[in-house]
Design a binder for these strands. Structure first.
Length: 877
DNA sequence: ATCATCACG
DNA sequence: ACGTACGTGATGATT
């Protein structure tokens, strides 16, 4: 039989380390009931790490017992100087105990003794039995326990790394044996435990003495060997201290334990209990890593494999039907479709033959029922690839979950189900991840399908109730769900990319790049990797000795704002800036976009509808919302062309939508007046903050500064941020902001109000009741709290603007269909919609699109929309 | 996987 | 005294 392995954990010390390791981020880790979980989470992952690493057969976690110990009785000041543990820590301790119970790990504390003594006693017993022991602690004093079969693992900075103290390692570090560690502590004392040692003796001196004498006892027996000195005087005077300190530092290896080694057998966690605890504590990471969520360990489920012979079994029902067309990859435009399920209240029908869906019988059946899905857009696009229509999706678990709380950052079905207290294996657990992702055996796959179907039908009424309770039913039913269908249509339509045109541009940029490269190498006097900020930093700030303006945490900053300040210092700087520009265009917008073109010569982006915290969309594979719009990069837009000869690209954008939203929700009369009279809002702001009488007095520079201030206001202003942005002093920026709030007083009230609302109810809302929770609003950490406050001010503005364009998109799609136009909507870029259509329809679009967009919602100020069209996206400006 | 950088609104 | 503008995604380098 292999050697028994024992793991002893200093629970008190590790819990403390865990708490302080995440101390600065503490307020990010709280449950909705306000319980801090940072120590619990960190302790949990430390536990997983060490159990994984040492694979013990026996485990004990020892804690200090509250109240005094035999050491306090001996020396009343022992640990007396310590502050009481923070309440945020103490509230977590009971949960750490519960966590250990659920992990199946014994924990123990003994009256009058410290965790060290419990550990020391057990380690000694284990040594006697010839077991192999690892002790995990944050306290170096425990290294005195190291023996040939006991290793003391001490946490290094943070909690991730362990330093293994074997007798050999102790010898290497201190030239001492483990048992001499207590002599070391006796001489040095310990400030954290508050015992004295010998005056003026620190680690250096203590080590020297011990190398000479071996122990405190031997030192005092032979003290005459020391030449007279201040140190010797101190030693003599403090002999009692030294001896007492040594006793205090000595771990009692014969503590009267009421448990023994045989009580410590470790057989693994109670996964159901752990899952329940993790769920209760909202520990999503931990839940995700729980190995239990595999199909095998789930209760068996029933399903029927659908074939063309048993289609008649699909029952007619008025109840909701769960549906999914499953793919293992993110990109549903191209992913292999591995199967589907149709789940009714009674039975789940499954198949890997997705062509069954194309049979008229199945299509008709699907058309006759209300479908409940996870990710409507994904299913719509995938079905369309088969030529299948899903006309009646009326619930989307992913979307509903996102609206209830947008900060869920997962789109794993199992994860979302678990977030709503429904136990469903993660997709990741059933399918694997990364290179290991594959279609599982049919039994697992179909079992997973059937469980998902049940989850959908169970969670649907629950989430609908919650949406209703949060006043978000209309947001869900009338906005997000219809939008999913509109977005699916836009993604499927795609936009044609003229790769030849783009490649032509790319060739020019590539040659510019080569010229600049050579020039820069010559100026630098060496060749290096220009794309490496690290190497570039060395060249600029070490070789060329340019002044360092800013540092990043890894080295010198070489970002644009830094380089711009260095432009006059050396001609190399401008060349680097130019190189950066063309390198970016070439790699991201030429090579990158060409790589993303589908065989139909089109780009089919995917809009992420459940990602942003504000309600905006985002766009991936490729990102079509950050195509260059200014300067040379704008040429890229020439490569985006209509799908047909004689068609054009048409674009409409909201003018100043965020400031108009602000004027509306703040109710500010002065700002509303400016918009009602269609004035240039930035010039208007300039007149007000610079106290001018006429628009003629506004200089371009005043307007620029006023514009930056307007933006700053929308972002949740700070004088520092504004100062940095427009290159004025912080004092001047402060004056701008004060002036601004004087001129737009209700904007000021709005800012205060949003922060107050966030504090009182824990979240802020948009015009359409989109919600964002701001846990950090109560943080004691200035940075986190300030960030939450700015977010409270910005989110209703950015989010309401996002709501408005979403409404416009839904109406716009309907209008295109009603008017039987060939034109179609292709892209959305936050405040802008892009279409393509026959040249003959351009005039109609020019009338229709702005009308739909500016009437999407009725605000206290008008919405203004501007339109352009032309042969390419570049020309639609 | 994370960082620094830079593209967009 | 603290050290900050809001929301995103892709790239190449580095770990």
């Amino acid at each position: 039989m292999a050697q028994e392995k024992l793991l002893l954990i200093d629970g008190s010390s590790l819990a403390f380390r865990a708490f302080y390791a995440m101390y600065t981020q503490m307020d990010r880790f709280t449950t909705k009931d306000g319980l801090h979980t940072n120590a619990i989470m960190t302790f949990n992952s430390m536990l997983d790490n060490v159990v994984d690493q040492f694979k013990p057969d026996h485990i004990l976690v020892a804690f200090d017992k509250s109240g005094g110990t035999f050491r306090t009785k001996m020396f009343s000041d022992y640990k007396a100087q310590r502050d009481a543990a923070p309440s945020e820590f103490l509230e977590q301790l009971p949960y750490i105990h519960e966590l250990l119970d659920d992990h199946g790990i014994k924990h123990y504390a003994l009256q009058d003794y410290e965790a060290d003594d419990v550990i020391g006693t057990l380690a000694k017993a284990a040594d006697a039995r010839g077991w192999q022991t690892n002790i995990v602690t944050g306290d170096r004093d425990l290294t005195q326990l190291a023996t040939s079969s006991t290793t003391v693992q001490v946490t290094k900075k943070g909690v991730g790394d362990l330093e293994a103290y074997t007798p050999a390692h102790v010898a290497e570090k201190f030239e001492l044996e483990p048992k001499q560690i207590i002599d070391l502590k006796g001489l040095m004392g310990d400030t954290s435990d508050n015992y004295p040692g010998v005056t003026k003796v620190g680690e250096k001196t203590a080590l020297k003495l011990l190398h000479q004498f071996g122990s405190i006892e031997n030192l005092y027996a032979n003290i005459d060997e020391l030449k007279p000195s201040k140190m010797k005087e101190n030693l003599v005077n403090d002999q009692a201290n030294a001896e007492m300190s040594k006793t205090l530092a000595t771990i009692d290896q014969a503590a009267p334990l009421t448990i023994g080694l045989d009580d410590l057998a470790y057989t693994g966690p109670d996964l159901d209990a752990l899952r329940a605890l993790y769920t209760k504590l909202e520990m999503r990471q931990a839940l995700a890593h729980l190995p239990a969520a595999t199909a095998e360990k789930q209760a068996p489920v029933h399903f029927v494999v659908l074939t063309d012979a048993n289609l008649a079994q699909l029952p007619k029902t008025a109840d909701p039907v769960a549906f999914e067309l499953e793919m293992l990859e993110d990109n549903y435009h191209t992913a292999e479709q591995i199967g589907f399920f149709i789940g009714t209240t009674e039975e789940t029908f499954v198949s890997t033959d997705v062509t069954l869906l194309t049979l008229p019988k199945v299509q008709n059946w699907l058309g006759d029922h209300q479908l409940t899905v996870f990710d409507a857009k994904r299913n719509l696009v995938a079905a369309e690839r088969l030529g299948v229509n899903l006309p009646q999706i009326d619930f989307d678990l992913l979307l509903a979950s996102y609206l209830l709380n947008p900060d869920q950052n997962s789109n794993d079905f199992g994860q979302i189900a678990q977030d709503h207290d429904y136990n469903l294996p993660f997709d990741e657990a059933v399918y694997g991840k990364g290179a290991k992702r594959k279609v599982p055996d049919e039994e697992s796959l179909f079992g997973h399908f059937a469980r998902k179907a049940q989850a959908l039908l169970t969670l649907r009424p629950k989430l609908l109730d919650e949406l209703k309770a949060q006043d978000q039913l209309s947001l869900f039913t009338d906005m997000e769900l219809p939008l999913a269908k509109v977005l699916a249509r836009m993604e499927i339509t795609g936009i044609v990319l003229d790769s030849k045109t783009l490649q032509g541009l790319g060739d020019q940029w590539t040659s510019t790049m080569h010229v600049l490269e050579e020039k820069i190498y010559a100026e630098a006097g060496l060749k290096f990797n220009l794309n490496s900020p690290k190497q570039l930093g060395e060249v600029l700030f070490e070789k060329l000795q340019l002044p360092v303006i800013k540092k990043t945490k890894t080295g010198y900053s070489t970002s644009v704002d830094v380089l711009e300040q260095l432009r006059s210092a050396s001609p190399i700087v401008q060349d680097i800036l130019d190189y950066r520009t063309v390198a970016k265009l070439q790699s991201t917008y030429v090579a990158g976009l060409i790589k993303a073109v589908h065989p139909d010569h089109k780009i089919h982006t995917r809009y992420l509808q459940t990602l942003t915290q504000t309600g905006r969309l985002s766009s991936v594979d490729p990102n079509m919302q950050n195509i260059p719009a200014r300067d040379e990069g704008k040429q890229v837009r020439r490569a985006f062309v209509p799908a047909h000869e004689g068609w054009q690209i048409f674009s409409s954008d909201y003018s100043q939508i965020e400031l108009r939203v602000l004027a509306h929700i703040s109710g500010d009369k002065n700002m509303q007046e400016a918009f009602k009279e269609d004035r240039d809002i930035h010039a208007n702001t300039a007149m007000r903050i610079f106290h001018l009488d006429s628009p003629d007095e506004v200089t371009p520079d005043m307007r620029r500064q006023a514009k930056a201030t307007n933006f700053g206001i929308v972002y949740g202003i700070s004088d520092f941020g504004l100062a940095k942005n427009i290159g004025i002093t912080r004092k001047q920026a402060k004056a701008f902001i004060d002036g601004y709030f004087e001129q737009y007083p209700q904007v000021h009230d709005y800012m205060d109000e949003m922060v107050k609302v966030a504090r009182e109810q824990g979240y802020v809302e948009t015009l359409f009741h989109r919600r964002r929770y701001l846990n950090d609003i109560h943080s004691r950490n200035f940075n986190l709290r300030s960030f939450a406050e700015r977010t409270a001010m910005n989110t209703p503005i950015q989010g309401s603007a996002a709501d408005i364009i979403k409404v416009a998109m839904i109406r716009m799609q309907a209008m295109l269909e009603e008017n039987h136009l060939q034109s179609r909507m292709l892209l959305q870029v936050h405040d802008e919609l892009i279409f393509e259509g026959p040249e003959a329809e351009m005039a109609q679009l020019a009338a229709l699109v702005p009308k739909v967009m500016d009437s999407a919602v009725k605000l206290a100020v008008p919405l203004k929309v501007e339109s352009h069209w032309g042969k390419t996206w570049f020309d639609a400006k």
